[in-house]
Computed example of a mutant assay.
Amino acid sequence: MKKYLLLSAFATLTLLSCNNEGTSVNNTVESMKTPAMENFDKAFKSLGDPQNRPTEEEKKRNTSELSDRRKALLVPASKELILSLGVTESELMRKTGGDMSQIIVWATQIYMKKSDEIRKNIKSEK
Rank of each mutant, 00 (worst) to 15 (best):
E65F: 03
A72H: 04
E91L: 13
G86Q: 11
T28M: 06
E58V: 02
T63F: 01
V75A: 06
S8W: 07
L15D: 00
G97N: 12
L16T: 04
K114N: 13
S64E: 13
E38S: 11
R69N: 08
T23F: 07
S124H: 12
F40G: 05
L85I: 04
K123E: 14
L16P: 00
G98Y: 06
K59Q: 12
N39F: 01
R53D: 01
L15I: 10
I104V: 13
S8N: 06
V87T: 10
M37N: 10
N19F: 01
L16R: 01
E57I: 01
E117V: 11
S124P: 01
S46L: 07
C18G: 08
K3C: 00
Y111L: 04
A107Q: 07
M1K: 05
L47T: 03
L85Y: 03
T55N: 01
T28L: 11
Y111K: 14
V105K: 13
K114A: 10
K2T: 13
S67V: 07
K126D: 13
A77H: 02
N27R: 10
S101D: 15
M32S: 08
G48H: 10
M37W: 10
D99L: 06
I122Y: 04
K71V: 03
A107D: 06
K3F: 08
E80I: 11
T12D: 00
T108E: 10
S31Q: 11
T28K: 09
L7R: 13
T88F: 00
K120G: 08
Y4H: 11
L7H: 10
I104R: 10
T14S: 09
R94L: 15
L15S: 03
N19S: 04
A11V: 12
I110C: 06
A77S: 08
Q109N: 14
G98D: 07
E89D: 10
L81F: 05
N62I: 00
N19W: 03
K45A: 14
R70M: 10
M1A: 11
T14M: 15
T34R: 04
S17Y: 10
S64M: 10
K114C: 05
K114E: 14
S90W: 00
K120Q: 15
L16H: 02
V87E: 02
S84D: 06
N52A: 06
K114W: 08
E80P: 07
S8M: 12
L83G: 07
L74H: 05
A107M: 07
K42D: 13
G86P: 09
E58M: 03
L16G: 09
V25N: 00
K71S: 09
L5R: 09
P50H: 01
K120L: 15
E30G: 03
T63W: 03
F44G: 12
R119N: 13
